[in-house]
Design a protein around this nucleic acid. Structure first.
Length: 574
RNA sequence: AACCCCGUGGUGUAAUGGUAGCACAACUGGUUUUGGUCCAGUUAGCCUAGGUUCGAGUCCUGGCGGGGUUGCCA
């Protein structure tokens, strides 16, 4: 994987970042001489049973970011120990999302399934050590005998069977002599432990099932607690980062490794990311897809990385967001506004500006020569004049935004109204002379005059106008489909709902508005898919990855609107 | 209910035991050929009660509050 050899030096922006508790631990391990900086090994260990989302991005930035900062290595390992749920489709999607986010793992993609033989051998050792036994209770019996949070468990009748018998049975489990669910290998720990995970946890279960990588080579599969620490150990991971729900598993993680002659990584837990107006669990996201509430895993309203990508989010914005989050053990909820701020910050600097009219209103300029088109110069990005300019056509008939005209202008309304003068961005001053309507009284067209002296947008006499509006010349306008996305849920916490309902009841019915009669300046049609741009005064948009066809069909997704202080003013006055 | 973890402005987070700071959000004002951006400013915080200490957000104990755990999932 030569393209993976580049260092992950895009960093998570840590130069001036405060030292969080995880980095403090790593620093201490280096200071004490336990590891040299370049020996630091981390891993990102997804289970290939779903798509990566913004919550994973936090883990990814921590895993890859910390390894990179110390000059260590970070591996990508598929935690594929449950063939019933996993699939190659997800492996490829995970790899693609990771690359898109900007991270390169060290070496090839690794698989827990590649370690099945070693794990099996160590399990045999555990039996020989008297630390594991084959149990023949049913799943139900095991559950019952585990006790509860308040009551101790009861030992299995098979708990004290001989080592030789367990060895024989375990070997035969592997050979496929027994049906699913008939036997398991269990660790012999403590049925009275207040930590229920220590009450003789299952290490192996029988699953006669084809695995997406190992095929039919195995019919017993290791459980997470037994497998994960070994995976980390085999790979020489020094610091194994995971989320808080695994905290209570840490004693087990350590218990399994302790008697074995193996390297012992340190597991460190941090709080997972929660976002307002968002659900994050795979199960909940899966249901949105299955019940067709969204168009798929990469629907631009989904918090999946592929969804955010299609929406127009940049990898830089996501990384910057994670860096600003910090790392703690406190389970809170982050406002999605912070993410959006990171996005706008990046896009403001890097997105070229264009003009697009979402809801067109036709304007005829009565004193502009009929049939004449002139090409005016417009800056691509006022934030970066060095990015140059482009030419946009201007003519007698143009479209402006319906919102930019009011027959009766409210106080502080700086846009067009009868008799009022505004500036057409990059073009001329315009004054509204006449309003045309149909029989129902709907405004169909405006007749205006322009001031030829104001070409480019400034008046030689020094007169000023308060408002500047965007526009698109009619004969060159490109028809486009624009998709305006809003938050998927209508309340901050989608799980906060009435008795008998669930998060599905909190879906925002207006999370998608499709506009099919939009008018774009011609250059936009030529942009390749996934071009991120700003439609001036409107918002940031991204040409759709799948449906936008350069030269043929313009389809843009609204990534995030521009801040709209006029909307605030108007709301306040109503 | 038992065990584990965690409590700093509205939100996310800083602060060798020594002046509680940053970002986002909200609100003011300024600049502006995007009602964008940018700039300046305002509001607002150590869960609580004791203890240790010259001095506690930080250390100890209790209380309260929140999260996690009771799959042959990860």
């Amino acid at each position: 994987m030569s393209d993976n050899s580049t260092a992950n030096n895009i960093s998570s922006g840590t130069e001036n970042a405060p030292v969080d508790f995880i980095r403090a631990i790593v620093n201490e391990d280096i200071r004490s001489g336990k590891y040299k900086p370049e020996e630091i090994r981390t891993r990102f260990p997804p289970e290939p049973n779903g798509y990566l989302h913004i919550g994973h991005a936090k883990a990814i930035c921590i895993d890859f970011g910390i390894a990179a900062e110390y000059g260590g290595k970070c591996y990508l390992r598929m935690d594929d120990t449950n063939p019933g749920k996993e699939d190659i489709e997800y492996v490829q999607a995970i790899e693609e999302d990771l690359r898109w986010l900007g991270f390169a793992w060290d070496g090839p993609t690794r698989y827990a399934s590649d370690y099945f033989q070693q794990m099996y051998d160590y399990a045999v050792d555990m039996i020989k050590l008297g630390l594991a036994y084959v149990d023949e209770q049913s799943a139900e019996e095991i559950r019952q005998n585990r006790g509860s949070l308040t009551e101790p468990g009861k030992p299995s009748p098979w708990r004290e069977r001989s080592m030789a018998e367990s060895l024989d049975l375990f070997e035969r489990m592997r050979q496929g002599e027994f049906p699913n669910g008939s036997k398991v290998l269990r660790a012999k720990i403590d049925m009275n432990s207040p930590n229920v995970h220590m009450r003789d946890p299952v290490m192996y279960r029988i699953l006669h099932m084809e695995h997406h990588r190992s095929g039919n080579q195995w019919c017993i599969y290791p459980m997470y607690d037994w497998a994960h620490g070994l995976e980390d150990s085999i790979e020489g991971i020094t610091h194994s980062f995971c989320t808080l729900e695994f905290e209570i598993h840490r004693p087990l993680y350590e218990w399994f490794l302790e008697p074995l002659p193996v390297h012992r990584p340190r597991q460190i837990e941090f709080s997972r990311l929660n976002l307002t107006y968002t659900v994050m669990s795979k199960r909940k996201l899966m249901r949105l897809v299955a019940e067709k509430k969204v168009s798929g895993w990469d629907d631009p309203r989904m918090p999946t990385l592929c969804g955010l990508r299609r929406r127009g989010y940049t990898p830089e914005a996501i990384r910057s967001f994670v860096q600003q989050l910090g790392i703690t053990k406190f389970s809170g909820v982050t406002e999605v506004a912070l993410l959006e701020n990171c996005l706008r910050e990046d896009l403001n600097k890097n997105a070229d500006r264009y003009m697009a009219v979402l809801n067109p209103l036709k304007v005829s300029i009565s004193n502009y020569p009929e049939g004449q088109i002139e090409w005016l110069e417009a800056l691509n990005n006022p934030e970066k004049p060095e990015l140059g300019s482009r030419k946009i056509p201007f003519g007698r008939e143009i479209y402006i935004e319906q919102d930019d005209f009011r027959e009766v202008a409210p106080r502080k309304y700086y846009r067009l109204s009868p008799g009022a003068e505004v500036r057409l961005r990059w073009a001329y001053f315009l004054t509204c002379q006449e309003v045309k309507k149909d029989e129902q009284g709907n405004i169909t067209e405006l007749v205006c005059t322009y001031d030829p002296e104001t070409r480019g947008g400034s008046a030689p006499d020094g007169r000023r106008v308060r408002g500047t509006i965007h526009w698109v010349e009619a004969s060159h306008a490109v028809a486009a489909e624009l998709r305006l996305y809003d938050r998927l849920f209508k309340c901050e916490n989608p799980d906060d709902c009435e008795e008998g309902q669930d998060y599905m009841a909190n879906l925002n019915a207006d999370s998608l508005t499709t506009l099919r009669d939009c008018k774009l300046e011609p250059a936009l049609l030529e942009l390749p898919p996934e071009s991120r741009v700003q439609f001036e005064r409107v918002g940031y948009f991204c040409s759709d990855r799948h449906e936008h066809k350069p030269g043929e069909k313009a389809v843009f997704n609204r990534t995030v609107p521009l801040r709209d202080s006029w909307a605030k003013i108007e709301k306040k006055h109503n």
